[in-house]
């Protein structure tokens, strides 16, 4: 079976018609379903948070069968993810897409258990620290997309679990946990 790095590609990836948007509704639904799962799976294992429609995203073309997805097809598959809350467009032109293999709520839960595991219930951390500090090393939070992290933190702020405060520069927003 074909592989991308250590990622095992599904069989349909080598079947050329899956790279053409299908005109018949039932067939198209199945096609969209398979692509949605593939994109989520791939992004989760490879820790990819943002997919650019015009970039060389490895899933968008398969040199083995010499097929690549049209712009229309890329947008259709990502839009299907967006409509399920598993992705969000980052711009109006639909050129960049944020992939949420964990929903924001799930990321918030991950942050909470990270805080508890590390005894940080009353501590202060910067956003950058959560993303790349020593505490988060080896957890799912390590290397998390900044936009997603902020969104999850804001969700927790609404619930009164923490407070976000501005530092002197935009890069070091601070977070005060209060669990």
């Amino acid at each position: 079976m074909q592989k991308l790095g250590d990622f095992k590609l599904p069989h349909f990836f080598n079947y050329p018609p899956y790279f053409t948007l299908q005109p018949v509704r039932d067939t198209r639904n199945k096609q969209v379903q398979l692509w949605k799962e593939l994109i989520l799976d791939y992004c989760r294992t490879q820790k990819i948070f943002v997919v650019g429609l015009e970039e060389d995203f490895p899933l968008f073309s398969n040199p083995v069968v010499e097929r690549s997805l049209s712009h229309e097809a890329r947008e259709a598959f990502l839009s299907a993810l967006v409509s399920e809350g598993r992705a969000e467009w980052l711009d109006k032109g639909h050129r960049k897409c944020l992939i949420l293999w964990h929903r924001i709520q799930e990321w918030a839960d991950i942050i909470l258990s990270f805080v508890k595991d590390n005894g940080l219930e009353d501590s202060v951390m910067t956003v950058e620290e959560i993303r790349s500090g020593t505490e988060s090393r080896g957890t799912e939070l390590h290397g998390i997309d900044r936009t997603i992290l902020i969104r999850a933190l804001r969700l927790l702020e609404q619930k009164g679990k923490l407070a976000i405060f501005k530092g002197t520069s935009t890069d070091d927003e601070g977070v005060k946990f209060s669990l």
Binding site: Y15, P17, F19, Q22, V24, D26, R67, S68
Partner: peptide, 22 residues
């Protein structure tokens, strides 16, 4: 195609539509 027995493929270099049968 309508019966879901075929799928179209417009991606080949020669530009001819192919009908694939899973």
């Amino acid at each position: 195609l309508d019966e879901g027995l075929a799928m179209i493929d417009d991606g080949h270099r020669d530009g001819r539509r192919r009908y694939w049968f899973p």
